[in-house]
Amino acid sequence: MLEIKCPYCGKRSQNEFSYGGDASVKRPELGKEISDKDWDDFVYLRKNLRGKHSELWHHVAGCRQWFKVLRSTATHEIFKTTKVNE
């Protein structure tokens, strides 16, 4: 079971959190012109890399804050966790 340090609550076991996927995916701005391809890439394409992966987690059974985790997808080692805007 992963141990994740919520930037608001501190270290907690994984079962308090839910996963939110690749944090590098940025939602295009509302109302802004965007090509079909760029939009579809946003919706469907993922880096899916092996190694350091920036990802979102949600402290659902805690403070209910979303935050970012830098974690190795090869070893599951967590390098750091930060608030979303950090």
Partner: peptide, 13 residues
């Protein structure tokens, strides 16, 4: 297990 991973190992929960 519910998160991106290339490790062929999971966790007990």
């Amino acid at each position: 297990d519910g998160y991106n991973s290339y490790a062929q190992r999971g966790n007990l929960p």
